[in-house]
Design a protein around this nucleic acid. Structure first.
Lengths: 127, 127
DNA sequence: CTTGAAGTTTACGTGAACGTCAAGTATACA
DNA sequence: TGTATACTTGACGTTCACGTAAACTTCAAG
């Protein structure tokens, strides 16, 4: 159980940010008798998910959905099937993103080669 | 050379968005005699870059930097070297992102398997 | 040459994701 | 038990990325 200060240094965010995430239902710290927040391991795992989600341009609302997906202990058949379908969708999205990134990678590599060649031709020249 | 209306339908954005991008220096349409915007092929390429950049959570400012990288006809030696170094950094970022996405993929797949197993155990049972 | 759709500038509005006080309370340590 | 540091709850402010409305102009078709 970590206090808010430890969380801020661990994740490089401000206390305001952690409280805001709690306000949105992304985090669920418990409280000490005095009222201070105590973040359980689950919240640390959630923060890692949030970090990643943000890097990929998801809104906090979308990230919340994902957290629910990872979190919920779904027991009903229908719920399970629904979860699996949702997960499959996310998998496809991820695959699509990987493909795109690989395309970008190729483009950048080609561009790099072009510049490197140009640099060789400029060898001994001036700026 | 496309007009703003064609651009909006092609990219699924509003005219306001295109004008905003222009305001930030991301697009550079020319004008008709009357003052209407005409988007050259270069701006279409830029829009594709913008689309991707946004999907990966980059700010428009960051995207602008990237556009400059893809755009500029750098001729000086120092400029070229700088560009190549910048490109290498971006390449590393992309690789890192691909790795992360592959991790997420694995996690999701494992989760899917877990749910599928649970679903089999629930076979014929109820919620 | 009219008419309606499409485009223009100007300017204020908005939602997301926090930043930044202020004023009071908890916690840790000598 | 004092006190420095950490934490609390408001509540208003700010930046980004546009939305939206008003008032006007240009463009394409008949």
């Amino acid at each position: 159980m970590k206090r808010i200060g430890e969380m801020t240094s661990e994740f490089g965010v401000t206390a305001r940010t952690l409280r805001y995430y709690e306000e949105l239902g992304l985090l669920s710290p418990v409280r000490t008798e005095g009222g201070s927040r105590q973040y359980p391991p689950a919240d640390i795992a959630r923060m890692k998910l949030i970090e990643r989600g943000k890097r990929y341009g998801f809104s906090l609302e979308e990230i919340k959905e994902m957290i629910l997906l990872f979190d919920k202990d779904r027991s009903g058949r229908v719920q399970l099937e629904r979860t699996i379908r949702y997960g499959d969708e996310k998998l496809e999205e991820i695959d699509e993103r990987i493909r795109e990134l690989e395309d970008m990678r190729e483009e950048l590599t080609a561009l790099r080669a072009k510049f490197a060649k140009k640099l060789n031709q400029t060898e001994g020249g001036n700026g």
